[in-house]
């Protein structure tokens, strides 16, 4: 079972510090990491490979330094990696990103399954996975929380997908694309041997020319959307804080009065 995992390098947002005086994000010293939600896709791919054979290839579009994210995936057990990097890719929105990833996936070929994280923790869109499935015209299941069965002989798999009401089970012919949620697996840590392999791996870098990408479909030019403004909303609300130690009943009274004042009880 050959599996492709498109991943993204993101800033380490869970430790983002805000400057209280300006309300802006402190970017100094913010490290780049593999999108935490992609780790579940990587882990799931590695588990499927262990059960059904084949190999796992990770790919990412980004600056040349994004090879670090790919090496981290190799250290977790992935076999191969491809870096998609070109100045012409810069400024891509989800559409133009998915276009490049889909072209690269066509060039790699021979895959049974594509696994994506639910979304990236920086852009938070969750669009690139469904975008890629549409570009390749392969079956799609999003928000997959579990794999029920894989039948490599028949070339199909059955998965559970989250909905507002619980879960639904879908049967998909392969090749297919899944976006997976955290519930699906527990990512393993990189091993020492994996790290050694990651350091030694040759990672090919493909540009627009290698992919035969059309110039009006990549980078800023190929992106229908434009970010026109970025604001930093103020986080602090400066509400009332009372101490239960000064009298728990009074604290609860004040709270209930507050809720009533807001029409919440």
């Amino acid at each position: 079972m050959n599996i492709l995992v498109p991943i993204k390098q993101v800033p380490e947002t869970s430790n983002v510090k805000m400057d209280p005086s300006t309300g802006t994000m402190i970017r100094d010293g913010v490290e780049s990491i593999v999108n935490p939600l992609d780790l579940y896709a990587i882990e799931t791919a590695n588990q499927l490979k262990e059960r059904h054979g084949g190999k796992v290839t990770v790919l990412t579009m980004g600056p040349p330094s994004a090879h670090k994210a790919l090496r981290e995936a190799i250290a977790m057990g992935c076999d191969d990696a491809v870096l998609l990097t070109d100045r012409a890719f810069a400024g891509a929105d989800t559409w133009a990103t998915a276009y490049v990833l889909a072209r690269a996936i066509e060039r790699i070929g021979g895959y049974d399954l594509i696994l994506c994280g639910e979304r990236a923790t920086d852009g938070d869109t969750g669009q690139v996975g469904p975008n890629i499935a549409a570009a390749l015209n392969i079956p799609l299941a999003t928000y997959v929380s579990g794999i029920e069965s894989v039948d490599t002989g028949r070339g199909e798999m059955s998965v559970w997908r989250m909905t507002e009401h619980g879960y639904e089970q879908l049967l998909l012919p392969l090749p297919a694309l899944l976006t997976v949620v955290k519930e699906i697996s527990f990512p393993r840590l990189p091993t020492l041997r994996g790290k050694q392999r990651a350091r030694a791996s040759e990672i090919p870098a493909w540009g627009a020319g290698d992919l035969g990408a059309e110039a009006d479909k990549i980078g800023l030019k190929g992106s229908p959307t434009r970010v026109v403004k970025i604001e930093s909303p103020k986080v602090t609300r400066g509400g009332t804080v009372v101490k239960a130690a000064d009298g728990p009943e009074q604290a609860v009274d004040q709270l209930v009065a507050f809720l009533r004042g807001r029409d919440l009880v």
């Binding site: 989800t94 869109t125 969750g126 669009q127 469904p130 549409a134 799609l140 999003t142 909905t163 229908p224």
Partner: peptide, 20 residues
Amino acid sequence: FNGRTLLPHAAMRLHAGLTA
């Protein structure tokens, strides 16, 4: 779940801008 699945699928095919 469904809206965030359907719209990116359709937007890709239409080369339309989509904001999540």
